[in-house]
Design a protein around this nucleic acid. Sequence first.
DNA 1: AGGCGCTTGTGAAGACGTGCACAAATCGCG
DNA 2: CGCGATTTGTGCACGTCTTCACAAGCGCCT
Lengths: 256, 256
Amino acid sequence: MSQHRHPGAPGRAGAVPTLPDLPEATVARLPEYLRALHNLADAGHETVSSEGLSAAAGVNSAKLRKDLSHLGSYGTRGVGYDVALLIEQIEYVLGLTQRRAVALVGVGNLGHALAGYDGFASRGFRIAALLDADPSRVGEEINGLVVRHVDDLPTVAAEESLAIGVIATPAAAAQQVADQLVAVGVTSILNFAPCVLSVPEGVDVRKVDLAIELQILSFHEHRKASLTALPATGGTAFTALPGGFAATDTQEAIGT
Amino acid sequence: MSQHRHPGAPGRAGAVPTLPDLPEATVARLPEYLRALHNLADAGHETVSSEGLSAAAGVNSAKLRKDLSHLGSYGTRGVGYDVALLIEQIEYVLGLTQRRAVALVGVGNLGHALAGYDGFASRGFRIAALLDADPSRVGEEINGLVVRHVDDLPTVAAEESLAIGVIATPAAAAQQVADQLVAVGVTSILNFAPCVLSVPEGVDVRKVDLAIELQILSFHEHRKASLTALPATGGTAFTALPGGFAATDTQEAIGT
DNA sequence: AGGCGCTTGTGAAGACGTGCACAAATCGCG
DNA sequence: CGCGATTTGTGCACGTCTTCACAAGCGCCT
Ligand SMILES: NC(=O)c1ccc[n+]([C@@H]2O[C@H](COP(=O)([O-])OP(=O)(O)OC[C@H]3O[C@@H](n4cnc5c(N)ncnc54)[C@H](O)[C@@H]3O)[C@@H](O)[C@H]2O)c1
Ligand SMILES: NC(=O)c1ccc[n+]([C@@H]2O[C@H](COP(=O)([O-])OP(=O)(O)OC[C@H]3O[C@@H](n4cnc5c(N)ncnc54)[C@H](O)[C@@H]3O)[C@@H](O)[C@H]2O)c1
């Protein structure tokens, strides 16, 4: 509270945006709030309480309030948050006011699905290029975009200001592709290949690995099975899992 | 240390497996160690040091040692870890000794890619059924599996012991599908639809949301841009980012 | 056998994230 | 204008995670 400078509202002119450096955990949740807010806006809500928004986003309301307070938030006590304003704020902080260009490398099985996905456009991104190393794939048109050869990356980067590179190649090729992306100035990479990438300092890599998610679920299945298999020694001690079990990215038992 | 009971090696008979309850953060990393270990095994390594394995998995070596110590690990001081034994251990803890059956619901754009993905089989899972609500999709054969109607779910569950349900339907249908999965006894769900699911206690849900990953990357792009835009006051103070910046699921600047 | 170098396993400290509980602020209404 | 209902923003305490640093253990070489 006290004198909290507006951290750079979208409408304001340049003048040093003063991005507050948010806790990483908060950053990871802002997109969820944003999605929930868009749903609320579509449903006609003009304001929403922290209680309502946190329920829609599936988090604790105190956590939500603390997250929003980090970006010097615009709530009104006794009322709640202005939905439209909050959307603007979050989109600004996340850097979504500009439609960022994404280059998708590897137009195979998964790459085709990604290329045809409309969730890119509706959430602030634009597929600027499809790239592949297989000559037989080059030239193919998907969703209005023509697949180009991965060696054209420098040309593509010269035409467009690439913000993010998405790697959907086999693991064996991923490091090489990452190097090529870095070479043309890409500093953010989303990697679908199941491998660790080495990148220079200043380049961010996030990974999506289906098998890891399944294996984490498998662990919990295993644990649940070994618990219920135990002969109930004293009573129903194990029926209710110990509290605070959910963590990282797992949601469990969210009541309606 | 002291007398550490083997927590249930795969070869041993039943006798109460005694699954140690691992920190959630550790569970999330075990699959990465497992992948790195398989690579090492394929490359012919019989043992590996915590330093070597942590490098291959892209984490801090102390963290790796602590993670492994949680499962009553099998390292030898002065030598390292036996690769094959460690693989066995981790696979046991993750519950991968049985090939878990996965039901994939929603065989659209993304569902097709998942159905054709060989990473399932190679990492301990088996697609047991493909399900969709669209009558025109039912009957289609993908990778040797025939798409069945989602209303056949009870029949499928009766035939197979379904461990995990994967939801790849539009967000609007996801909750309903989740309810159907829960109704037939599925207690682990991987959700690709961008929405929050409500499930009863005891059911685990993990989500994969492409847009969230991109938006997190976008935030860091935004932040990096706003930093470099600043007139360098004293010198190269901002060239190196403050240490300990990577978090959650982000790897950054991993040296070779 | 003894010593030496290497590596594990872990205690302890600090950083980080979470959630309760409540004071401060705002609105609407009489 | 004042009051009560409501909701935000946050201090605080607690739990979890990370990282350092080092003693204990192991194998090898002499
Ligand atoms: N298919 C899925 O559902 C799925 C799910 C999770 C993860 N993945 C991972 O995503 C990646 C892609 O999977 P896929 O099923 O689409 O594989 P795929 O073999 O169908 O497609 C890979 C594509 O990458 C291209 N490619 C290969 N080397 C390249 C290079 N150096 N530069 C540019 N392009 C190159 C190939 O020509 C091919 O078109 C894999 O690493 C896979 O493990 C896939
Ligand atoms: N395509 C991608 O690359 C991608 C990436 C990330 C997330 N997603 C998400 O994954 C989901 C699927 O995306 P998509 O591109 O494959 O969509 P899609 O429309 O191509 O496929 C959806 C499929 O679900 C089926 N379906 C609809 N209602 C159903 C129900 N009640 N029960 C069973 N099946 C039902 C439809 O018949 C269709 O086959 C969406 O939520 C999307 O946001 C997709």
